[in-house]
Amino acid sequence: MADVPTDPDQPLRRPASCTEVFKVFNRLAMQGFGGVLPVAQRELVERERWLSREDFVEMLAVSQVLPGPNIVNLSMMIGDKFLGARGALAALGGMLLAPLVIVLVLAALYAEFAHHPLVGGALRGMGAVAAGLVIATAVKLSRSLRHNPLGVPLCVGLGAATFVLVAILRVPLVGVIFTLGPLAVFMAWWKLRS
């Protein structure tokens, strides 16, 4: 595998065809053990350069407020951005088809191996790494906050408040998004006056 990510400061490029969109999303879905987002950030921002860090985090923000799996929403948005509805379908297919077949085969086999200690241990180890990868993705994307009109201190405060409410106090997500969200959007709206 040519495993050298390009420099995040290189110019952006765009996918040439739906086939390319399908292939790239298929490739990143198939690498996404324990979650696709860390791989998506790496492939789309660092390797393919289809999106800047800012584009990525902006689209992720929209996909997180909408219902549905964030990463699938995000894939469809990206496909649609470059190649319209056909691009969106290509991204969706690339993301879901092969992994769906694999997961169903695993589900059919699972009953036989479920109680093997090796399997349980491996799942635990993979879970810990998957959690670490998501946190690392957040750290990488946080560099985009430097250009946020809200300013870094306010951004950090809002991010920390979200974390405490959702992760520590386990407040339902919908409640957090519809209270903290409007507050943050209003502050941004205020800062953007000119």
């Binding site: 987002l37 985090v57 902006e58 992720l60 923000a61 929209v62 997180q64 407020v65 998501v134 946190i135 993705t137 957040a138 994307l141 946080s142 985009s144 906050l145 946020n148 009109p149 809200l150 306010l154 951004c155 950090v156 405060g157 809002l158 991010g159 920390a160 408040a161 979200t162 974390f163 959702v166 992760a167 997500l173 957090v176 998004i177 903290l180 969200g181 943050a184 959007v185 209003f186 502050m187 941004a188 709206w189 800062k191 953007l192």
Partner: peptide, 15 residues
Amino acid sequence: AFTTGMTPLTLGLLV
């Protein structure tokens, strides 16, 4: 305003 306001929340949600 929507995208810039929601970005910090997005990162908080990721963590």
